[in-house]
């Protein structure tokens, strides 16, 4: 067994590393005493109430984004597609920031606003689902531009300190998820299972809609299912952590380069790989300019892009 064949071996290593890094230097001993069971002392509370939830959130959100990215890429037949391509992130941000403007006193309304906003965006996109792929993509891009404009309008109207908060939310924040880590992990598992059930049809869709249909796929139904599934997953991820770019675009491609194009492997690999990338990025975000933090979205691109380009070059030569 080597890392190349079994990259999953990295998972425990990364988990351990991520548990160990943080604002407070907790010795290995403290972890080994209670690595998996909560205790009462400060170190154990930090691990259980601060680090584990954040790691779980990072893992689930990263996995969900990568799955949504893989789905959108096949659905739209476009390698440049990513979870936010149809404007779901934009409408979620509009929802979150409207909620913040309407109820500035409660922090949690932002998450609820994001979720409602995401579903409004999805409903609008679904109205275009019957159009062909190219027009669906076009409608999505235009909708994204629309939500972007609404967002700028809201930000222009917001009090100045609200803007700081809005920007911080839009750059992604894993530390304040309203949704508990275990529920995100559940969503991750359900999404992966749904994806695996559809994986053969997805493979056929890689040949184009006509070929897929000729191979017995009900393309119309599959497209609706995929659109709903990918959008729902994006909505959950955005609700939990704001918008974190790049994971959804690059992780599926990275996994195709490593494991081939068939969806059974691409989806499993993306669900884990996206999670791992986000755990890494988030750990780095906490460390690079400690005690201050960077927005995690910055780090996902900074870690992901070089890895991706390196693989791309190596595969083509």
């Amino acid at each position: 067994m080597n890392i190349r064949e079994n990259p999953w071996l990295l998972l425990p290593v990364l988990l351990a590393a991520s548990l160990l890094v943080g604002g407070l230097a907790l010795g290995m001993g403290e972890h080994w005493i209670n690595p998996l069971s909560p205790g009462d002392d400060m170190a154990s509370r930090i691990v259980w109430e601060l680090r584990w939830p954040r790691i779980l959130t990072a893992f689930a959100v990263g996995g969900l984004l990568a799955l949504a990215g893989a789905w959108f890429q096949v659905l739209l037949g476009n390698p440049l597609a990513e979870p936010y391509v149809l404007g779901v992130a934009g409408s979620a941000a509009v929802g979150a920031i409207s909620a913040m403007a309407l109820f500035p006193d409660a922090a949690w309304v932002m998450s609820i606003g994001a979720f409602i906003g995401a579903w409004v965006g999805i409903a609008v996109v679904l109205a275009f689902a019957h159009l062909g792929t190219a027009r669906l993509l076009l409608a999505g891009v235009v909708l994204a531009a629309f939500w972007g404009a609404v967002l700028m309008l809201l930000i222009a109207l917001l009090p100045e300190r609200g803007v700081v908060r809005a920007y911080a939310w839009m750059m992604g924040d894993l530390s304040n998820s309203l949704l508990p880590g275990w529920s995100l992990l559940l969503a991750w598992a359900v999404a992966l299972a749904c994806g695996l059930l559809l994986s053969l049809s997805l493979d056929k869709l890689l040949l184009g809609e006509k070929h897929a249909e000729a191979l017995g796929v009900d393309v119309y139904r599959l497209r609706r299912q995929l659109l709903l599934l990918a959008s729902a997953v994006t909505a959950i991820a955005v609700t939990a952590a704001g918008t974190i770019g790049f994971v959804g675009l690059v992780v599926p491609h990275l996994m195709r380069l490593l494991f081939g194009s068939l969806h059974r492997s691409v989806l499993i690999a993306s669900a884990f790989g996206g999670g791992l990338l986000l755990i890494m990025a988030d750990s780095a975000a906490r460390m690079v300019i400690a005690p201050a933090e960077l927005p995690v979205g910055v780090l996902t691109a900074m870690i992901g892009v070089p890895v991706f380009l390196w693989l791309l070059l190596r595969r083509t030569s």
Binding site: G22, G23, L24, M42, I46, L50, A168, S175, R286, I289, A290, P291, A292, E293, L294, P295
Partner: peptide, 10 residues
Amino acid sequence: PRVNVEAVIA
């Protein structure tokens, strides 16, 4: 700067 709870504890 954006910080986290741990950094404040520390």
